[in-house]
Design a protein around this nucleic acid. Structure first.
Lengths: 209, 209
DNA sequence: ACCTGAACACCGTTCAAGT
DNA sequence: ACCTGAACACCGTTCAAGT
């Protein structure tokens, strides 16, 4: 006796649980969310507009009413993933340490990227223009500036950290673990610590000026 | 009077200068070289097996005699690009400075990646198993160890530098220049210097142990 | 050993047309 | 406003068959 894993409707097709929805109820957020779920199942190469449309219960042509093209969709997925890993603590909290926050945000970016199949490749894409994530990032940048960094240095430090974390995750997801070396996580921590040490050198040089 | 840019044969098709070659003369190296040239013309999305085959004057099916699949071809292109930027100076030379060499190799990786269209995306791919580049890299790692680093730390430093350079180049090639910030090259130098400063901190801590 | 012909099972995107 | 049908111009890959 076969126990079907499928849903209520008895017949036919096994995989691809199709979403049921009424006419006007499909928006960009739903498409992006479904895209991210599908990414985990099929990977970046399997994530076609046709497959995604099937998953959403529509035809692929319909996607082009919501998005200009596939690139725009992927960029929005990238933006959502970055937003996912910014719930980290705000500069206004009591025991806030800007350097700890910076290192932790690097770890969060890496693990968010690693949390889904080909996640790093998605996060390496450009972000959409207006991330409303502006506010917490602004606060944290100011916290870095209070340590003695210029505005541009603070901006660059955050930028570099993000770049390093995504670069590391890309390599981890695309290459087999390098033989004769430690684990990927340890390698990441080495790079992160070294960068943070360099940043402390810069801060120290600002302090006694 | 039209001045045709085409080659000797008078007629027909304008673009795609097809290579002329006798039967057994096509090898992996030629295919990879042509692939890299074509990459500059059409970008990673335009680089199809069919287009490449046309460029080589063969049918796309023939590529599968030389390579298992497109992935293997792209990985070999990645390996060749990395090899391109390792003619930098060897640890056996007179005025050799291991830290300078490390920073310079980061710059070389970045500029090699930026030197061709979508080059960073290609370099982010896994390398093929046996790069004969082993020898110069080994010497340079030993030079780092002479400064006080353990073998693993030296390996990790080289690894991190490569990761950072490729990560930076990927972002530069896929995102528009960030507004309100300095140039990409300046941003890269900031990250590089900070990392190198951190490395010097580590070396100093080893020195008085 | 090296290459082709022809097919298989797909793609992203457009656009007139439907509701 | 939102979606479909149908087409256009492509893909990567396989495999029997040619030389």
């Amino acid at each position: 006796m076969k126990t079907a894993e499928a849903t209520a409707t008895s017949a036919g097709e096994v995989h691809a649980v199709v979403e049921v929805r009424e006419k006007g109820s499909l928006d960009r957020a739903t498409i992006v969310r479904t895209g991210l779920r599908l990414l985990d199942e099929v990977g970046i190469d399997g994530l076609s507009t046709r497959r995604l449309a099937t998953e959403l219960g529509i035809k692929s042509a319909s996607l082009y009413w919501h998005f200009k093209d596939k690139d725009e969709l992927l960029n929005e997925m990238s933006t959502v993933m970055l937003r996912e890993c910014l719930h980290l603590g705000n500069a206004n909290e009591p025991g806030f340490d800007a350097l700890d926050w910076l290192a932790d945000s690097a770890r969060a970016i890496r693990s968010t990227a690693l949390s889904r199949r080909d996640g790093a490749q998605v996060m390496a894409r450009p972000l959409l223009k207006p991330p409303n994530t502006k506010t917490p990032l602004d606060d944290n940048r100011k916290a870095l500036m209070r340590l003695g960094l210029t505005e541009m240095e603070a901006r660059l430090a955050m930028h570099t950290i993000r770049r390093f974390a995504i670069g590391a995750a890309i390599q981890e997801q695309s290459s087999p673990p390098v033989p004769g070396t430690c684990t990927a996580a340890e390698g990441f921590e080495f790079g992160l610590k070294t960068f943070m040490d360099g940043l402390k050198v810069l801060i120290a040089s600002r302090a006694h000026k």
